[in-house]
Nucleic acid binder design. Structure first.
Lengths: 342, 342
DNA sequence: AGAGCTTTGGGTAACGTTGCCCACTGATGA
DNA sequence: TCATCAGTGGGCAACGTTACCCAAAGCTCT
């Protein structure tokens, strides 16, 4: 073993000694704090570079700040979330903050563990993407650490929200399919029973938007509940196909769901859009794929990410600032998986 | 603002006072250390639960441990990496460790920043998936913190490695296509020029395996260099199609690359496998998708993840244990995108 | 000249946890 | 009877950084 590498970290004390100043002075330079002359700044900067010093975040954490932002998302496999993430990291790139991601957590227990872990690690701020936890827990969490909630239709004095108008998005899809002549349009949703979440979660709002849009047109509502995963789409489509009467179109609540639907349809020997039309949601890069060319709803993930990052930075800077709610508008992107019914 | 929520965290001191014991005693119970009677353990446990105490990781970090494992991966959009991640989190679920992920970093600069950030945050161990940093930096990093390197064909006394046999994997693909009767097989690789990385990175080894397998059969090597992304596949396929003579098969170095190739082929009005055969690598869930049904090479991502986690835990427990190299064997999964040439 | 600033620099007590010590108590063994 | 020892519990000094202080020195303005 190379013992030279195992030596102690360079600390602020080493820098101070090397520069011939106090640790306080070094700390001031690091924080751009008041009370350090340009001459001293230069001296300290030089010492920092010569020694290759980097502040130890754990020690800073003990004093209040870790310069770390935690991000929680429900499913790393859903290709929509990386879009949001890109927006976040692009915005935070020029700041002192670093982004760390939790592993996928799709249930309340995992969410609780992860957010606890993030709080315990002294994170300066959290971005929660479509969290399923109870409103009370969300409230309590946001009171503990600056938080931005993405996707969930709720508001609170403690946290900011960034949402996309899922009701309109669902209406866009139903309108598009109805205009093509479809009368029987099935919807695959992410199952939700908790009354608090029924009104707030994007999947539930999307399903409700579908319901309203169908009823407004006098069409029969046909909802299958599974989950926003590829498997959920597969199973949902199988349920739909097992019935006596087949719908002429399926509205999948997310592109990843549509992926699973495609598998099931293909296995059943049905072709899209000849036998059945299919629309997704999120306009992921997968939807644009040539052989797939999925009709979808664009909700500008990158933009959502930059907004979330901006709001979080503002909230970290001033925790008493009134909570903001940003609401973005979706756009329909028609592609080749939707066509008039035969 | 709800002031009650803003109160100080519950600390070990509060627990000690509440249980009527010393902080040392509480710490002993927390760490399952020697020197605490069952009676005291029970008393302290009760106090911990009553107060809802959770240890503060930043303070622990200052003393040496943060119970955090950092994971770095090149591209969150590549659906292969979540498989590895699942293996990691499944194995670490029952331990005291938490997994935190860095955002995608596909270049040496970002990698350096991220690994620095992870070291600065006192992480107990790192899992680096296909890192591109220099061998010297890798060596130095692994000497600083317990590390497992995934995918990179290298060995060191400081870190363990988990790799898949990419040479064999490439041979499987070329063999499969050649057996079908293909003579002109193009390969899209992730561009690599650094000599150190040419011998070590999975993409480079895969390309080399392709080269050897082609030459062993007396076939002409035809390599296009882009990147292991959807866009890389799209651009690579466009380059291939712009030439006077079209290959009868394309071997994409990763499934995500094959996704982009499909788009380009579709735009060019070519159908798969009638006009051109296509094989990917990684056997991601996307490859199994009905309408895609991509021939691919399975390298058991979940298994890679569990092995990496196991090795890392061992190394954290004993940093002097000799470094291990785990090498897994790939399997060909033929599907509908490969067929004899017309 | 002296009062009252501003600027510059440093001393130091936290922050929450750990692990090395030591002290005390009974029991054990010579 | 006296050392020895295991078992139990606690004191306390770190770990690296920050922010609240205070002190000294050099100004400006009467």
């Amino acid at each position: 073993m190379d013992r030279a590498d195992q030596q102690r970290r360079v600390t602020i004390v080493d820098v101070a000694r090397h520069a011939g100043v106090s640790t306080t002075a070094v700390s001031k330079v690091l924080r751009n704090a008041y009370g350090a002359s340009p001459a001293m700044r230069a001296k300290v900067q030089r010492a920092i570079e010569e020694l290759g010093y980097r502040p130890y975040a754990a020690a800073r954490g003990l004093r209040g700040q870790t310069y770390t932002i935690g991000v929680m998302l429900p499913d790393i496999r859903n290709p929509f979330f990386p879009d949001i993430l890109d927006g976040l990291t692009d915005t935070l790139r020029d700041t002192d903050y670093h982004v760390l991601l939790g592993p996928s957590c799709d249930n309340e227990t995992d969410e609780g563990k992860l957010t606890d872990a993030m709080v315990d690690r002294g994170m300066d701020g959290l971005v929660l993407i479509a969290p399923v936890m109870s409103p009370a827990r969300l409230e309590h969490l946001a009171a503990t650490v600056p938080t931005v909630v993405v996707g969930r239709h709720t508001r609170s004095a403690h946290y900011d929200t960034v949402t996309d108008d899922d009701t309109t998005g669902a209406e866009l899809v139903v309108g598009h399919l109805a205009d093509l002549g479809h009368r029987h349009i099935a919807h695959i949703e992410h199952h939700e029973t908790d009354p608090a979440r029924l009104a707030e979660m994007p999947n539930a709002v999307r399903a409700d938007g579908y319901r309203k849009a169908m009823e407004a047109r006098g069409l029969a509502v046909d909802i299958v509940s599974t989950s926003y995963t590829q498997e959920g789409g597969y199973l949902g489509a199988q349920q739909i196909l097992a019935r006596p009467e087949r719908p002429t179109a399926i509205f999948a609540g997310a592109d990843i769901v549509a992926m699973g639907v495609l598998t099931a349809l293909s296995e059943a020997g049905l072709s899209v859009p000849e036998d059945i039309s299919l629309a997704g949601y999120d306009n992921t890069s997968f939807a644009a794929l040539g052989p797939i060319s999925l009709t979808s709803v664009d909700q500008a993930g990158h933009h959502i990410g930059t907004d979330a990052a901006r709001l979080l930075l503002e909230r970290i800077a001033d925790r008493t600032r009134p909570a903001a709610q940003v609401k973005l508008s979706p756009k329909l992107v028609p592609r080749r998986t939707t066509a008039p019914p035969r």
